[in-house]
């Protein structure tokens, strides 16, 4: 599956206005979204450093080249991956409204961690392709994780926990496009690594510090396509995204992001051979 996206910046003071405009364009009310993102790093294959490239004689040039190639292969395919947990209410909205858990003025769920549960998914995103297309195109993969010890499972799977953060925002859906207006909050480090994925241990949203002190939001417009190698499909998605860009021209400027800013590869430590 491929993901085509465009990005735009929404200042904090324009946020409400943008939401209203998006609600008009997409003919729906904003869907409030809260997500926890756990960042994992793939471990380098053990024993890689023991592979010695040098020390051979001149005649072993071909073997050395072979070793270099192998090393390159083992190191280049190492990426950061994420475990994304969407926080949802464990009860239906109707019950929540009856139970006075729905704040009608702010149109948001009142935070009560005991009433919430998390839907986890494993997300891999490649670095965007280096093309001259007017959108960011990248390979993605999403897998749902139903239940279990997330951190331990990932550890056994060969991924090492790095960091975590929290995303809040509103989602809109228009045809095939998902518009996500969001901002990032920092999550404190958990005392115990096992508690990292436990939402009951997460402090309320107001206590979480914003990553961007200007309190601005990011607007991300995305279309997922089944196969990015089919040109016709890609063109259709690009057309739709550009049409949206044109529609939202007055409100927010949508543009592809810097490719390297979306890089998910783990930098290879430069080692002298």
């Amino acid at each position: 599956m491929h993901e085509l996206s465009l990005y735009g910046a929404v200042p904090a003071e324009d946020h409400v206005q943008i939401l209203q405009q998006l609600a008009g364009v997409t003919r729906m009310q904003p869907q409030h979204v809260e997500e926890i993102h756990l960042v994992f790093k793939a471990r380098t294959p053990p024993g890689l450093e023991k592979v010695h490239g040098s020390g051979g004689s001149q005649g072993n040039q071909q073997q050395q080249n072979e070793i270099q190639r192998l090393k390159g292969m083992l190191q280049s395919g190492i990426y950061f991956v994420q475990l994304v947990g969407t926080i949802v209410a464990s009860q239906t909205p109707a019950e929540l409204q009856n139970g006075q858990l729905f704040d009608t003025e702010r149109n948001e769920l009142v935070e009560d961690r005991t009433q919430q549960k998390v839907n986890w998914r494993f997300e891999f995103k490649d670095t965007p392709e280096s093309t001259k297309q007017p959108t960011n195109t990248r390979l993605i993969s999403r897998t749902r994780f139903e239940d279990g010890e997330m951190i331990a499972f990932m550890d056994l799977f060969g991924f090492e926990y790095v960091n975590r953060y929290y995303i809040e925002g509103q989602k809109f859906y228009n045809q095939d496009t998902t518009i996500f207006v969001h901002r990032v909050r920092q999550l404190p480090t958990a005392d115990n690594i096992r508690d990292t994925s436990d939402i009951a241990k997460i402090p309320p949203r107001s206590e979480l510090q914003l990553l961007d002190p200007s309190e601005g939001f990011v607007l991300q417009a995305t279309i997922d396509i089944v196969d990015g190698n089919v040109q016709e499909l890609k063109d259709r998605a690009v057309r739709q995204l550009l049409a949206l860009k044109e529609t939202l021209k007055q409100a927010v400027t949508l543009a592809p992001a810097d490719r390297l800013a979306l890089d998910t590869r783990i930098p290879i430590p430069v080692r002298r051979i």
Partner: peptide, 15 residues
Amino acid sequence: RHVQRSQQAPPPMSQ
């Protein structure tokens, strides 16, 4: 339809 459209993410675009 409105509920479906506004509460579920659109499925990936396919041929």
